[in-house]
Computed example of a mutant assay.
Amino acid sequence: MDQLLNDFSPGLFFMQAIILLILIVLMRKFAWKPILESLQTREDGIKNALDSAEKARLEMQNLQADNKKLLNEARAEREAMLKEAREMKDKMIESAKTEAETQANSIIEQAHAAIESEKKAAIAELKSHVAGLSIEIAEKVLREELSDNSKQQKLVDSLIGEATLN
């Protein structure tokens, strides 16, 4: 350290101080402004990039909210369509049941009517057949009874006795 103090020259010191000041002024005038301008440009670019990123983030949030809204609307619409389809299915089933029941009742009524008409026809045929048989039997009995004159006379007398005259 002593050697530094012995080698110290005030003239050299002032000369170096003046050169340093001139260098600082030159640097300030020619180098400092471009450096500060480039730093300012870079800072503005970073700020713009951050603003763009924030806008993009907000836009993305809006898009996500819109997507959720659209998704919810689509789900609601799907549920409404499914509900409507179920209601239509139930109505169609109910309509088919009602129609089938109506047709079944109609067929049953027709069957009852057909059975009744067949029954009446069978009864009429049976009556006709029984009447024919009765006439045949009566005819045979009368032939047998009326073949003898004394039997004929007895029958006429009994019929006259039963008949009352007014």
Rank of each mutant, 00 (worst) to 15 (best):
I115W: 03
K97S: 03
A80Q: 15
M60L: 15
K83L: 08
L26I: 01
K151S: 14
L133W: 13
D66F: 00
L12H: 02
E37K: 10
L23M: 12
L63V: 04
L159Q: 03
T102A: 12
Q3M: 08
K120D: 12
K91E: 08
Q64K: 01
L36M: 03
D148V: 11
E139I: 00
P10W: 04
S52N: 14
R86E: 13
L36I: 01
A163Q: 05
P10L: 06
L146C: 13
A76T: 15
E73V: 07
E144Q: 13
E77K: 01
Q61N: 15
A80R: 12
E101P: 01
L39E: 15
A76K: 06
Q152H: 13
K47C: 07
D90H: 03
L21C: 00
A122W: 01
N6P: 09
R75D: 13
E59P: 11
L70D: 15
D51V: 08
E77G: 05
Q61S: 13
M1F: 04
I137D: 10
E144M: 08
R57E: 11
A85K: 00
A100W: 04
R78A: 15
L126R: 12
E145R: 08
L82V: 14
S95K: 04
N72V: 14
V141Q: 05
L4F: 08
I18M: 03
I137F: 04
I24H: 01
F14Y: 02
K140L: 10
Q61K: 12
A114F: 03
R42D: 10
I46G: 02
L63D: 13
P10Y: 01
M27W: 02
Q103N: 10
A80K: 14
K151Y: 06
Q40G: 04
E43I: 12
D44C: 00
G132C: 04
L58H: 02
E162P: 00
A122Q: 05
K69Q: 12
D148I: 08
Q64A: 09
Q152G: 05
K69H: 11
L26Q: 01
F13L: 01
S128G: 14
Q153T: 03
D51C: 05
G11M: 07
G161D: 07
L142G: 15
L71R: 06
L142K: 09
L155V: 02
M92D: 14
L71Y: 11
M81C: 11
G11N: 12
E139Q: 11
